[in-house]
Amino acid sequence: MTATVGQQAQAAARASDVWKVYGSGEAQVVALRGVNAEFERGRFTAIMGPSGSGKSTLMHCLAGLDSVTRGTVMIGETTVTGLGDSGLTKLRRDKVGFIFQQFNLLPTLTAQENILLPLSIAGRKPDPAWYDTVIDTVGLRDRLGHRPAQLSGGQQQRVACARALVARPEVIFADEPTGNLDSRSGAEVLNFLRNSVREHGQTIVMVTHDPTAAAYADRVVFLADGEIVSELIEPTAETVLDTMKKLDTPAEVAN
């Protein structure tokens, strides 16, 4: 089953018939099998699936961190497939924001410097009004001069969110952003991500295995065995959990 939701013109990221195959011969592992997916502008999409389903691979391919074996990936108007290292670097710098599970910040830089790092690398100045908005939204104004080591896990992750947001990328990819946080800090981060979508029209694609986290999204895409198998619009934790339970049984063999 394939999912093609939303209007084409509005897609911030799109995967067309994407295959990803690791290794060859006997050791061949197919991680993605002809995935077609679109992620609309201004929406918060979660990618879910059991471990080994290919959800992280899909995100890495979409973000230009990994190459696809077949098919095309586009971010906005840019075709990601076929770009060289410098093209990919430029893409990541200008069009994509990242929030990882951990090791999100440079320990030598202050919170503020970490937030502004992608812009400084690109040699751009932040829009002061937008910068203020972001800082106020993440609520870190009094912590800007601190180093990562002096911040809690939740605060560090909010700094990472602010860094992703401040450059106003086409799309932000979040890879298990709450995986290392306690539930309260996790809720703060997820609320913050949802608000940035609702209030500022940011596009976010988040990979998670936590149904509660997925429930913050506008839409959930389910992957199993390298294929998109289901999707939910306006999910709740319960509906997500139900869908997951249905998927769990056949996917155990993978990985």
Partner: peptide, 16 residues
Amino acid sequence: TRELGLLRAIGLRRAQ
């Protein structure tokens, strides 16, 4: 390694 990966992920070029 991880830090370098992060920097590269958020757009640091090879030459940089």
